[in-house]
Structures are given as structure tokens and as C-alpha cells.
């Protein structure tokens, strides 16, 4: 169980301060797959990195089994690193491509001294390769990353994480670089991992339709804020925030008879200038009211598993 509370990450570039995370709270509970969706710049990647202590926040805390992860040291820190893994969007970037696949996967085993001898290490690596569907594993183990396709290499990256038996995985756009035909296979690995080992997963994506298939709960982020979150069913079937509604409407449906829907996205064509204090979304929001321009709305529960930050509700 991992929980981020009121996380704030600000990036300073010359004269502007970008609030990548502006008071974001998330919780991933036992055996849950939680989706985070948002457009580029919404802070979703920063959220994943902050939860894993790869990015220090200026405010807020991350609790892992009740312990603040930014204060872990020594053995506890190593244990945290071992049990919490991350999968990146671009596997070619995330893997040191000088190394053979075997060494890529064995790296974690060596760092955490999980194998007592070479044979044990080899067995663990081969098992990991088999687990992610890279057969024959011997052949893959001794190839170089740039001999593999994106889908294959992403499986290697997942194997590298799974070999450590993590309890929590951040998957940052794990399939968006990959061809449609191999995406489902990758998502399946995560689902199986959750079912068999109870691994908690935070799935970060810009594609809400994928989340519909695998997430239990979904957080919608917009410019460093969570604007709506709730169970996948509630959020997808009854999206409340105008942005979430637009996000769902904008997903093209593979059916020519549903054309009208894609072109019914409600959003302002001409954006207003943001005044620095209102709701972050009002410049594009077709329902913007005066109150939206004055103060940012807080997250509010509309039911026990559905929260939204919007003055409409």
C-alpha cells in the first residue's frame, strides 16, 4: 500500500515556476490497479516519479506501509527500492543498451544480492524472461537490446522489474510507444501479476480507453491537479468534470457508425488567458462560471467512490 499526500513538485525555469504537482493525493491499495490519466504536462509522470522517491517534492509525503519514503535510509531504503519498481514509456531509453538482456535483468538481482550463486541467478533471469512471454528465453537472454523490437524490449524492462518481486509498480505509459497488436500482451502481464502476486500497479497513461480495461480506480489529472477520481466504472460511465467528459468523448471509437461522437467534444476553441487564481480548466471549459474564475475548486465526494473538483457539482 502506497499513499501520496498533498504532493507538491515545482520546477523553476528562469523566471516561471511550473507546478508539476500542486497538492496531489493518491492512494494505491492492496491488489489494486490504479490509472492516472492526463495530457502531456499534466504532471502524471512526475507523480509516478515522486511516489518512488525519484523526484523530491517541495511539500507532502509518500507513505509506504506507513513509513515516509523520503526518510528511509540504509537497509530500509534498499528494501523500498526493491519492492517498488517503475516501467518507462520508451524501453530503448530505459535500458542501458550496451548490456545484454541477461545482464539487464540480472542487475537488480546483483544489487540486492538475491541469488547466492550464478546458477540461482541464471534461473531467476530465465524464469523472469519466461514470465513476460519471451520464449525461447535462452535466445533472448543473450541478445542485445537493439536486436529486439519495442514490444520485446518493453517485456525485458518489465522482467527486470518483476524479478525483484515488487509489491508496487509504476507503469508510465508502458504501451504508448508500441504497436496496437502487442499492447494487449503487455497489459496482460500487469493484470496477471496483480492477480497472481497481488502487486499494486499505478498505470500512467494519456489514453483513458486502455484504463477502462484494466484499472480499478482512475485519477484524472489536469495541470498538476487531480480534478476527478473514482472507481473506473463510476468515472467512465458517469464522468462529472467537463475535462473528463471531453477526454472520454475524444477517444475515437473503431466503428464508423459512431462518428458523430468524436466530433462532439465540448471545449472552447479560443482559449482564455488564465488569471492565475481560478480553476485551471476554466480557460477551455465551455461551462465556466464566474466562481470558476475566482477560486480553484476542491475535490469533493459525490459518492463514496467518486470525487470531483468542479463547481458544477
Amino acid at each position: 500500500m502506497i499513499e501520496g499526500k498533498d504532493l507538491r513538485v515545482y520546477f523553476k525555469t528562469r523566471d516561471v515556476e511550473v507546478r508539476a504537482l500542486d497538492g496531489v493525493s493518491v492512494a494505491v491499495k492492496e491488489k489494486e490497479i490504479v490509472g492516472v490519466v492526463g495530457e502531456s504536462g499534466s504532471g502524471k509522470t512526475t507523480l509516478g516519479r515522486t511516489l518512488l522517491n525519484l523526484q523530491r517534492p517541495v511539500g507532502g509525503e509518500v507513505l509506504w506501509n506507513g513509513k515516509n519514503v523520503f526518510k528511509l535510509r540504509g537497509r530500509e531504503e534498499r528494501e523500498f527500492r526493491r519492492r517498488n519498481q517503475i516501467i518507462y514509456q520508451n524501453p530503448y531509453e530505459a535500458i542501458d543498451i550496451r548490456l545484454k538482456v541477461y545482464d539487464v535483468i540480472a542487475e537488480g538481482i546483483r544489487v540486492h544480492r538475491l541469488a547466492s550463486n550464478k546458477e540461482e541467478e541464471k534461473e531467476m533471469v530465465m524464469n523472469a524472461l519466461r514470465d513476460v512471454g519471451l520464449n525461447p528465453e535462452e535466445e533472448y537472454a543473450y541478445s542485445l537490446p537493439n536486436q529486439l523490437s519495442g514490444g520485446q524490449l518493453q517485456r525485458v524492462a518489465i522482467a527486470r522489474a518483476l524479478v525483484l518481486n515488487p509489491t508496487f509498480i509504476v507503469a508510465d505509459e508502458p504501451v504508448s510507444m508500441l504497436d496496437m497488436s502487442v499492447r494487449a500482451g503487455i497489459l496482460e502481464i500487469f493484470q496477471r501479476q496483480r492477480e497472481e502476486k497481488g502487486t499494486e500497479i499505478l498505470m500512467i497513461t494519456h489514453d483513458i480507453s486502455t484504463l477502462g480495461y484494466i484499472a480499478d480506480r482512475i485519477y484524472v489529472m489536469y495541470q498538476g491537479k487531480v480534478i476527478e477520481h473514482g472507481s473506473a466504472d463510476a468515472l467512465l460511465e458517469k464522468p462529472l468534470h467537463p475535462y473528463t467528459q471531453a477526454l472520454i468523448t475524444a477517444v475515437p471509437i473503431p466503428d464508423p457508425s459512431e462518428r458523430a461522437k468524436l466530433f462532439s467534444v465540448k471545449i472552447k476553441e479560443k482559449e482564455e488567458e488564465y488569471n492565475g487564481k481560478g480553476c485551471k480548466y476554466y480557460p477551455r471549459c465551455p461551462f465556466a462560471m464566474q466562481s470558476c474564475r475566482e477560486k480553484e475548486p476542491e475535490l469533493k465526494g459525490v459518492s463514496s467512490d467518486h470525487y470531483v473538483a468542479c463547481y458544477l457539482y
Binding site: V182, E188, D207
Partner: peptide, 25 residues
């Protein structure tokens, strides 16, 4: 046929699972 089954479609998210095409091009 397989490609269409690999594409997420929010209308059928409960009825269907996404299907991967085995193998590689």
C-alpha cells in the same frame, strides 16, 4: 479481425478482453 480486437473500445470494456496478436512482424 485481430487488430480490431486489440483496440480498446470503451463501449465493450466489460464484455471483451483486449487480445494481443501473438508473435512479431
Amino acid at each position: 479481425q485481430l487488430l480490431l480486437k486489440a483496440i480498446p473500445d470503451l463501449r465493450y470494456r466489460k464484455q471483451r478482453r483486449l487480445v494481443a496478436i501473438p508473435g512479431f512482424p
